[in-house]
Nucleic acid binder design. Sequence first.
RNA 1: CGGGGCGUAGCGCAGCCUGGUAGCGCACCGGUUUUGGGAACCGGAUGUCGGAGGUUCAAAUCCUCUCGCCCCGACCA
Length: 580
Amino acid sequence: MRFSQALINTVREVPADAEIISHQLMLRTGMIKKLAAGIYSYLPLGYRVIRKIERIIRQEMDLAGAQEVYLPVLCPSEIWQESGRWSLYGPELMRLKDRHQREFCLGPTHEEVITDLVRREVRSYRQLPVNLYQIQTKFRDEIRPRFGLMRGREFIMKDAYSFDVDEEGAEISYIKMKETYQNIFSRCGLKFKMVEADTGAIGGSFSHEFMVLAESGEDLIAGCQKCDYGSNIEKAECLAQKGEFSSDAGLWKERESVSTPNLTAVKEVASFLGVNPEQLVKTLFVQADQEIVAVLIRGDYELNEVKLKNLLGAAEITMADKETIETVTGGSMGFSGPVGLKNVRLLADYSVKNLVNFVTGANLKDTHLINVNWERDCPVPAFADLRIVQEGDVCPRCGTALSITRGIEVGHIFKLGTKYSKALKACYLDREGEEKVIVMGCYGIGVGRTMAAAIEQNHDKDGIIWPMPIAPYQVLVLPTDVTDKEIRDTADFIYGQLLAVGIETIIDDRDERPGIKFKDADLLGIPLRITIGRKSLNQGLVEIRIRESGETIRVPKDKYQEKVQELIHKLSNIYIMKLI
RNA sequence: CGGGGCGUAGCGCAGCCUGGUAGCGCACCGGUUUUGGGAACCGGAUGUCGGAGGUUCAAAUCCUCUCGCCCCGACCA
C-alpha cells in the first residue's frame, strides 16, 4: 500500500470522549470511527487487523477440527421462545418486527439457531461429534456501551458450538477448545489468564474465561500466586468454615441494646462501639424474583450477588428498597438485624458462622444490639458462600493468598450440557437405536475486543506496538525525502521487492518532513520500519528499526531482505506458532 | 434507569455569566523557504453554534421542551 493513497488520517490530539488507551490510539490512528454509542466503522487499517485476528482464529479452529458456517443475524422469535430466552434475555436483546408484525431479534449469540440447525441435520451418533463456528456481527443492546470496541452494541464475534453424544465427549470437545483458545490468544501476542467463571445468561454447568491482564479491564479476577487457580471474582470461592454449626454458650455475654443515633455505616457503628468491623453482622435485604430474602454477612465483607442469585435459582435479584425493608423489619433502614425477624428467609455467609457476641441492627431506629449470639437470640440461619473474595483471601485449591487483578474478557467457553438441546429437542439415535439428547458446549471470542486488548498490552508513549502476527502491515518503508530521486527510487525498489516476496508492506511515499513520518510510524506501530535516508544511503546502507525495542540495524541496501525475513520470523515465533 | 458532565469547522477548545458582524490552535487547500523525530512565513477554504419552540428590534448567548454523546452506578458473554 502507498501511504499517499491510503485512507489513513492520524491525529495528534486525543479525542475528548476516549477514556482508555486502546480507544484513544485507535481513534488517533484512524482505525475506527464512531457512528453512534457502541457502534463503530472499521477503516482500512483497523479492518486489516481484524482480518489478521480472524485468520488466526480460522486457522486454529480448523486445526481443531471445527467447521465454519454462517448463520442468519436476523432470527425469528419462535426458536427463542422454545428455549425460553425470548422472555429471559431481557432488554439487551435487539428486537424488531417485520411488516406482518412478526417478531424477530438480531442475534446476540446463536445457541438457538445452531441447535435448530443441528436438530434438523443430525440424526445419528455417526454424525457426532461436530463443532461448528462462525465469525459474525452480533448485536446486544448494552445498558452502557463504553471504551470503544471494548463493549459495543454491535461487535464482531467468533462463536462456536460443539455437539457430542455424551458428557464424556463434551468434556473432550471442551478441553480441545481450551487448548485452541490458548493457541489463538498466544498467537495474537497477548498475555492472558484462563479463569473460572459464572455462566450468566448463556447458562450451562461450567465455564472458563480468557482474561487479558490489563489495568483498563472491566472484570476483576482472583488469581493464586502459587498454583494456577484463577477465577472471575463473581465466581471465586471463599473457603467454607468446616463442620456442623456449634456454639459455646459459656462464652455468651448478655445481649444489650445500644443507642447509635444516625449511625448506619459499618465503619461508623464499629468505631462508635469500639469494636472491629469483623464483629458486626450486616443484614441485607434482597428482592429475589417475588421473594424477599435477608442475607447476613460480616461487616468487612461484600455480598456477591451472582453467588446469591445462583444459590436461590432466581431469574433476577435486586437490593430491596427502603419501603420494603422498613415494612419487613418494622424498623428503620440502616438498623436491620436478624433478631426478631419474622416471615423472611434468612441466609448467611460462612463468615458469620463462628461469630460470638456480635453486633447487629435492632430493627429499631438509632439502635443496635451487642452481644448477639446464634441459637439464643435468633435461629441459626442456613450458611453458604455468599461473599465477594478479597485480596489476601486464601486460594481454595492450595491455601496460598489470592491477589486481585483486572482483566479484559476476550474469550469465554461454556459447558452447556443439554440446556438447549433438551429445550429444542436436538436428539440423535445411538448404536442401540435409542433416542438420546445431544450434549453441547459453546465458545466465544470477541474479535474487536481482542484487537483493543492487544493495544492495551502493547503500546508506549509514542503509540501502538503491534505484535507481528496481527499487525496491519509487517513492514513500513520510509523514504525520508521523496524529492530526492535516489532515495525515492531505492525506497520504491525495496517496496516492490518486499511485496513480490509476499511481505505485507506499506510505503510512506508522502511528501512530508521526516519528523512527521517518524511520528506517524511510531503511532501506527508497524513492527519493522525500513528507513531510506541521505546519510545512510551515502554509505550504501538502509536502516531497519524494530518498533518494539527501538533497536536500529544498518544493512547494505542490497542485503536488507534477508534481515527483514529473519526479523519477521523471529518476531512471529516469539508467540506459539502452530501454523499449518 | 439514577447521579454527574458535555454538544460551537474534520480534531481539541474559547465565546454564553452581562443578547448586537462566530473566533483560536491543529488538520485541510495554494505559494515561498525548509527537509533525520509532529517547521516558518504569506494567502485561502470550511459552521443548520445538536434540534424544535418561545422571549426580544436582535439569540451560540435568556427560557421551555427534546435529541445525542461521555463518565460513575445498577446491569451484562
